[in-house]
Simulated scan of single mutants.
Amino acid sequence: MSRKLGRVEAERRGRRGEAFAAWWLRLQGWRIVAQRVKLAVGEVDLVARRGRTVAFVEVKWRRDAAALDTAIDAARLRRVARAAQAIAARHVHDGDTMRIDVILIAPWRWPRRIANAWQPGA
């Protein structure tokens, strides 16, 4: 498979993973307020709200569950955190709690959510 076709397939799977993660979050009482926010400093896959908590969510989809262990690292989380900071004023209001979450998805597995995956200064 050519590199371009591989990238297109990865993008398709990523979008499907994000849609599944959004559905899963909705089942847990979250409201999706934004999707696929791309900025020069980074990207946020989902912005979700439940009560006074706003989560900027990074979604990672892998073909097998073992690959999820290395799907997210500090560099990726920093990019999400920079993008979240850039758009926070649109979604986070006085009294809200803001956090970065990660949802890891593999076929035939329930999603694994890492709540508050990024701490400032980490």
Rank of each mutant, 00 (worst) to 15 (best):
R63D: 11
I87R: 09
K38Y: 04
W118P: 09
F56P: 04
R50Y: 00
D64S: 15
V44W: 01
R112N: 09
A74F: 04
I32N: 05
G121R: 09
A75F: 05
R82I: 02
P107A: 14
N116C: 12
A83L: 11
D96S: 12
A86W: 01
H91Y: 13
L27F: 02
V59Q: 07
I105H: 02
A74L: 14
R112G: 12
G29H: 02
A75I: 01
R62T: 06
F56K: 05
A40P: 05
E58C: 13
G121F: 04
V47G: 10
L104Y: 01
R31Y: 01
A81M: 03
L68S: 05
P107C: 13
V102T: 03
V54M: 10
E58V: 11
V41A: 15
L68T: 03
A34T: 00
A117K: 00
V57Q: 08
A106L: 09
V80P: 05
V37H: 05
L68F: 00
D94N: 12
R76D: 01
R109G: 08
Q28K: 14
R90M: 10
H93Q: 13
R31S: 12
Q119N: 09
D96N: 10
R109L: 15
R109H: 09
A75S: 08
D69K: 15
A88K: 06
D69S: 15
A48N: 05
H93T: 10
D73E: 05
Q28N: 12
M98H: 03
D64A: 15
A89N: 04
N116D: 10
V44G: 10
R113I: 02
I114V: 14
T97Y: 00
P107N: 07
A81Q: 03
D73G: 15
E58R: 14
A81H: 04
A89G: 11
A34R: 05
K38S: 13
